[in-house]
Amino acid sequence: MRRAASVRADPPEDLYSIRGLTKVYGEGPTAVHALRGIDLDLPRSAMVVLLGASGSGKSTFLNIVGGLDDATDGQVWFEGQELTALGPAELTEYRRNSVSFVFQFYNLVASLTARENVALITEIAEDPMTPEDALSLVGLENRIDHFPSQLSGGEQQRVAIARAIAKRPKVMFCDEPTGALDSQTGVIVLDALDQVNRELGTTTLLITHNVVIAEMADRLLRFADGALVEDRDNADRKSPSELQW
């Protein structure tokens, strides 16, 4: 559903403003309420961790805020522009220019080397870093010309992170980025995310099942049954290397 985009008059303090965000799959008695009216403001440069069981709504939330899915009701404003009123082409531009994704299963293009996978983004971004810089940020400067089949899972995920940060996005969405990795490799990947957040100030929304990971966040959001049941700031943000699970 598209409505006329409304723009707030005041310069927005928060990066995201979310009001009454609702998502319903299906209709009638079989309808599934994935999100039940979420209200939330997210500041710039925060490291936000989203926790919750399977089906709690956290991925649906991430997909809508990331411009991959549309809402049934409610609004999402990004820098004062209403995302929930945008059409598919405008959402593509939003994903192209402002946000990045990291997924559990990496989603690298198998037929491109690490460098070329990153170049996929730098070729279409307005002010990108070089693929080499992006890869050295995640510690892969020596694996630049390797194909995905020649990289370990952790390395593949770090290429995915390099690909995500190379365009200097305002926001990075990470859906279970360590889900398929052992804890040692997981820490290396989280380290890369932490470093990007600190050095580049990229707002990061990170979904995880793993409560321990929440300790590296500025802010923690817990979802249950489509609702936001916990929203607290974490004064004592730890570095990933201090985490253990």
């Binding site: 991959l68 593509t92 531009e93 192209r96 990045s100 994704f101 989603n107 293009v109 996929l120 279409i124």
Partner: peptide
């Protein structure tokens, strides 16, 4: 499909 959708998610336009 998977590669192509990844690219769409990364912000590639439909014609691209």
């Amino acid at each position: 499909a998977r590669d192509l959708v990844s690219l769409r998610v990364l912000g590639y336009r439909r014609p691209e």
